[in-house]
């Protein structure tokens, strides 16, 4: 039996459908990455799986328990790391952990021991007596994760846990996730960073406009794009992007060209061969290229291939 199984999960907000009949399952011990751009429906999906939002239609089962029918049983099994930091600023890290631990009916020595362990894991032991309001963004993020781990859940939902923090803290968080997974924790991890999904996940679901457009392990997904390379042109002026992308699309060897933040993402089977042509066109248009980056097939390419848009738009 899969640990998570969804059945035609739908969420409507008034007449806007945020999640459209999503079906997937996650096995015990997996790290499953839910990859999608802003507004794709990642948080909405996690909210339904964690019993916070009632599905408009369909159902999901956590360890066989319906999120609609048996929400209290589901909540015993799961831990949640919300996208927005949800802590009490006026309490210390230790007091926050104590409060959230007791919400899971932990107490006494067990609670104290778990608090110490988690503080160690998130590297906040020496700041545990300080109020959260005095913490940096990265420290708050780490504590936000710590609260989710405290009661040793079987399944952890992590909703973009690394947004807005420095590379070092980010690295630490990713390592923690991998370590916990090795100890047996199943993780559903949402992100819009292709690299994170790629590094962490055993399997990835790509979600866009509330639909699961692809699902599989990385090899399966990249095979959808074929043996294509991704080429990124970093350009000086954002405004030039559209014009250059339009011209590049006319080149037969270029499958896709799309603009993102100061970037043009190109999908092509032969990156080295088209490179001179690309530079030529840029020169003709008087567009300054600051750097060029060529990558083997990856999830970004998959997303671009499937949607015609770059992941970060």
């Amino acid at each position: 039996m899969p640990l998570i199984e969804t059945k035609d999960l739908v969420k409507k907000f008034d007449n806007f459908t945020a999640v459209k009949k999503i079906n997937f399952h996650i096995q015990q011990g997996e790290i499953f990455g839910l990859l999608g751009p802003n507004g794709a429906g990642k948080t909405t999906t996690i909210s339904m799986l964690s019993t916070l939002l009632k599905p408009s239609n369909g159902d999901a089962f956590i360890s066989g328990h319906s999120v609609v029918e048996e929400p209290l049983l589901v909540r015993q099994i799961i831990g949640v790391v919300p996208q927005e930091i949800a802590l009490y600023d006026d309490l210390t890290a230790e007091e926050n952990l104590k409060f959230w631990g007791r919400m899971y009916r932990m107490s006494g020595k067990e609670l104290t021991r778990q608090i110490e362990k988690v503080l160690e894991q998130i590297g906040l032991t020496d700041r545990k007596k300080d109020r959260v309001e005095t913490y940096s963004g990265g420290m708050k993020r780490r504590l936000n994760i710590g609260v989710g781990l405290l009661h040793q859940p079987q399944l952890l939902f992590m909703d973009e846990p690394t947004v807005g923090i420095d590379p070092q803290s980010r690295r630490k968080i990713l390592d923690t996730v991998i370590e916990l997974n090795q100890q047996g924790l199943t993780v559903l991890y949402t992100t819009h960073y292709m690299e994170e999904a790629q590094e962490l996940s055993h399997r990835v679901g790509i979600i866009d406009h509330g639909e699961m457009i692809a699902i599989g392990n990385q090899q399966e997904l990249t095979e959808m794009v074929g043996e294509y390379d991704t080429m990124r042109l970093h350009i000086q002026a954002q405004e030039d992007g559209q014009q250059l992308a339009a011209r590049l699309k006319e080149i037969p060897e270029i499958i896709e060209a799309s603009t993102a933040d100061h970037e043009i993402v190109i999908i092509t089977p032969t990156a080295e061969d088209v490179l001179p042509t690309v530079i030529n066109i840029a020169n003709q248009l008087n567009i300054k290229i600051r750097s060029i980056d060529i990558q083997e097939p990856n999830l970004e390419a998959v997303f671009l291939h499937l949607t015609g848009r770059a992941l970060r738009d």
């Binding site: 964690s50 909540r75 927005e84 930091i85 919400m103 899971y104 009916r105």
Partner: peptide, 11 residues
Amino acid sequence: QGTLSRMLVTP
């Protein structure tokens, strides 16, 4: 601040 939602996903 999200703490209400967080409480609502505890048992």
